[in-house]
Design a protein around this nucleic acid. Sequence first.
RNA 1: GCGCGGGUGGCUUAGUCGGUUAGAGCACCCGGCUGAUAACCGGGAGGUCGCAGGUUCAAGUCCUGCCUCGCGCACCA
Length: 1114
Amino acid sequence: MNKKLSEVQNRSPGGRSMAPPKAAGELNAVQLETDLLKRWADEKTFQTSIDVRRNGAPFIFLEGPPTANGKPGIHHVVARTYKDLVCRWKAMEGFLVERKGGWDTHGLPVEIEVQKRLDLMSNEAIEAFGMAEFNQACRESVWTYEAAWREMTERMAYWVDLDNPYVTLDNDYVESAWWALKQMFDKGLLYRGHKVLPFCPQTGTSYSSHEVALGYKEVEEPSVYVKFKLTDDDASILAWTTTPWTLPGNVGLAVGPEVTYVRCRIKEAAGEHWEGAGGADVGEEVILAKDLMKEVLRHHVDIVDEFLGADLVGRSYEPLFPGAVPKGDSTTAWTVLEADWVTTTDGTGVVHTAVMYGEDDYNLGMEAGLPAHHTVAMDGSFVTGTHPELDGRYVKACDETIISLLSSPKGTNGKGPESGLLYREKAYAHDYPHCWRTDHPLLYYAMDSWFVRMTAVKENLLNFNDQVEWAPDWVGEGRFGEWLRNVKDWAISRERYWGTPLPVWRSESGEMKCVGSIKELQEEVARAVAAGIANPDCPDDVDLHRPIVDGFKLLSDSGEVMHREPFVMDCWFDSGCASFAQWHHPFENEEVFNASFPVDYICEGVDQTRGWFYTLLAVSTTVFDQPAYKRCLSLGLILDAEGKKMSKSRGNIVDPWDHFNREGADATRWYMVTAGAPWNPMKFDPNGVRETYAKMFLTLWNVYKFHADYAALDGFDPEASTVPVAKRPALDRWVLSRLGTVANDYHENFVNWQFHKAGRDLEDFVVNDLSNWYVRRSRRRLWDEADSNDKRSCQHTLHEVLLTVCRLVAPVAPFMVDEIHRNLTGASVHTAPWPAGVPGSLEGATSDDWDEVAAKATATLPPTDPELEATMALVRELAEAGRRIRIDGNRRQRLPCAQGWIVAGPDLSEFHDLLAEELNVETMLVENDLDRFQRIELAPNFRALAPKARSTVNEVAQAIRTAEDPEALLQAINAGGAEVLGVTVEASDVDVKRVERPGFAAQTVEVPDADGASLHVSLVLDMNDSPALLSKGMARDITRRVQAQRKAMDLELEATIDLEVWMVNGPTMEEADEAWVAAETRCAGCVFHPEGSTPPEGAETFEVDGTTVHFTVA
RNA sequence: GCGCGGGUGGCUUAGUCGGUUAGAGCACCCGGCUGAUAACCGGGAGGUCGCAGGUUCAAGUCCUGCCUCGCGCACCA
């Protein structure tokens, strides 16, 4: 860097608005970003970016609250990038976009973390430890990784207010949740029930369907075919189960009344291939569905009888485990029952029924009056009295014991067949629900629970879902819609400690009261105290958690004592309340809430479909009778570079900091957004981040550096001496037009959620159009030390293009573009307007409705000129064609050609100089006689030809393509139609291609013109040499070598040298060319020694086209 | 089992209404160009567009079946 530049670089940045930019230094992206973070903090740029849009229409974003008791990973960075980019974009569009942070702080994940740490692996252990102490530990544990989250969030530049977040454990938040529950209670949507629910013995709690959905895993387990011996008959009924542990609880067998069953007699002993335990004796008789005989039986049998299931109903059989279930006053226990849901798709067509451990079993049991008795305790072990060998053991560990008990002769009750009660065992692979936190298999278990009657509002759910704009749409219609159509009542209570307590008090006789606020609680407590029920104090700031709230006893309307139902809420209920609880609705902030419900935009991973996306809608539907959000972006899963799911156990988690500290957050974010559609699964390839950095950001920086360095040197003032666009050279007008086109497409893609397409196109513009063509072609324009119109045009153009590019990039990658924008304008890009317009700032605009025309008028984009863009595309094609010609003709690039001809196409005279320079041609000419260098080729146009030619289209096409004399054929066609193989071919049936004639150093390019039609333009180069050309070519080769040597010697740009040149077998150098070498290489002295002189030892040497050149630089 | 979304050179991907030569980037090889950046330009090699049928003059594209990956669903007893 020369002196002048370094002086400029050291100039203080303060107090400048539209002064000349500082020179740009070398890029250190990480340093640049961390410096900017400080600056944003100091200047409160985030807050300012909101404040400057204070009068804009609000655009409401709702943050899905993360849990801060786990480390943030790269998938969180992805989600936060999409949240951030939409908010930033909308803000730039002039909307007021406030972004409140949030934390999810209740629930199982927290409790389990604490349980592990304190070694409290059962509910008893927790209660022995003390619920208050335990919850205190939870309250603290919640913030374990808050700092890590904060650092990640700030470093990646996710702008969200973390200083005033909503926190689900706050009293205000809990109070709002209570209020919501009371609304449901009052509408009759909240009820207490006894149902079979998936239950985790380790965490001691049941789960709702959306939690169960999180934990399906494929497992292989023993399934068993069991003989149920009829009491009044020697035959046994076969039934199948995959859960042997439910067999002691068996109290019934269900058959399909319309299903055909058979009674079979075992004809001969089984073969040697018998696998596992079980068996049957010859002569023994079994009953099962006819359709399943082949599937089930492993013996040859005779069919003794055939009948419908209805005929079996009422038959009684011997209990498998006598005494495990007391019969009580049931008249139906251990008999055959009918159920229309019994099918013959698997099993035996007979369903073993254990009332307490299956949903259908339970319903059937209640209907038929079977005894409802638990054989399994809440900790997952068999209750005492089930069987001496099973009592107290964990049920899933008893499979083998149960199998061997059943296998013993005459069975467990001594009344079974001699061969035992087990017919067969079979390994069975199926998906089975597991605890999403502990991975333990869940047990279906009948228990008391609280439910929200979602089934009652199903129509509304579907309606409201239709109003949501989903991205992608198929998640809303398909996956989410499917879920809603099958909606079940929401089991919201948890037998746990750390969560929003269920605010329902209940008396012995079943009177209930739901409390909806602290004030109400105080009043109820006071009433109870007045009636003589002792109660602790209930101050205004009473902690709305267990065990405090458990301590309050209320008074029922009939005067009974009421105790709180000892449950906490599903923590998904908490986050489902976020849209209003974040504002402590309805107790505070009425205006804010009214203005921000429903919210405009939420965005989370697709795994939240059954999670947050659902609970938000579930709560808003039941409480407000409204949808909670208008737009929902559902993101695809993050996979590793191999396409595997990222998980701790696989060890393939990508740490975002690896990239923040190497390529920076800009490159990381831009990579993630351009890697694919947001909703598609993304293979995160660390190398892709590096590539993005090298291509997009390094290139952008160097374009900027090129501009800023010269702008600083020249004291360029973007507000002074502007050159009107119309007066600028075509190259400038071209890049501005491209910018306009690209920016409009970019905006269009944003609107359609196609952020990846937008980003890819813009990157292509920056790398290809801006850097590799505009800047490359403009470099010499800025070298000019004198002030000139041309130079100023270039500077203004660069300035304008860079500004707009910065603004377009800013929502996606907010760092580097801010640095650039600040240096160019003195203001942050994050307070700048969106180039495609600022609808949010329009009078009367709302987040989803504004005056399109007025919005367009606020755009700050240059006008587009499709014709100029098409022309430049052609020029670039021709430049590339020229290189191809030289390679084919074996003529090096630095050796000039005397002339080049452009054949056909539009007038390119404006670009002749540019082309001459690119192509290294002395004179560009236009050849008007097309036939001199071009010939015609005809290509069939199938779309037009096919309907006429029908099945002969291929032959006709071939005939057109291979016509002996295409010119003559074309003439005939144009003269009104030519007969080809019986088909009249007209002008519209063929495409005319003009290609170069063989024998010339020529290439033809095909480009679309502004109207989309094809242009065929040829370039021809004169490949003849002359002494003058050889001299010029050599001068360029020498110059290039000397420049390389200067660079190798690390000389200052302005340093002068002494150059001496010796040539062997060289061309005769012209004086002008020698002078040109001297000027280009900044020679103080320059000597070309005559042919035959001897160069000194150590001179640089190179060869070109048979000439050996030696030179020294001093 | 049912539903959704994928499968295009070694990798990442584009591909419109079906139109005859499937386009790009990375990596690789050869050459060129460069006071131009981790670059740029030209060329090369590398594709039975998951498989098999079908519709059609014509299929990566439409239809059917199958395979395979991912995700989701669940009265799997």
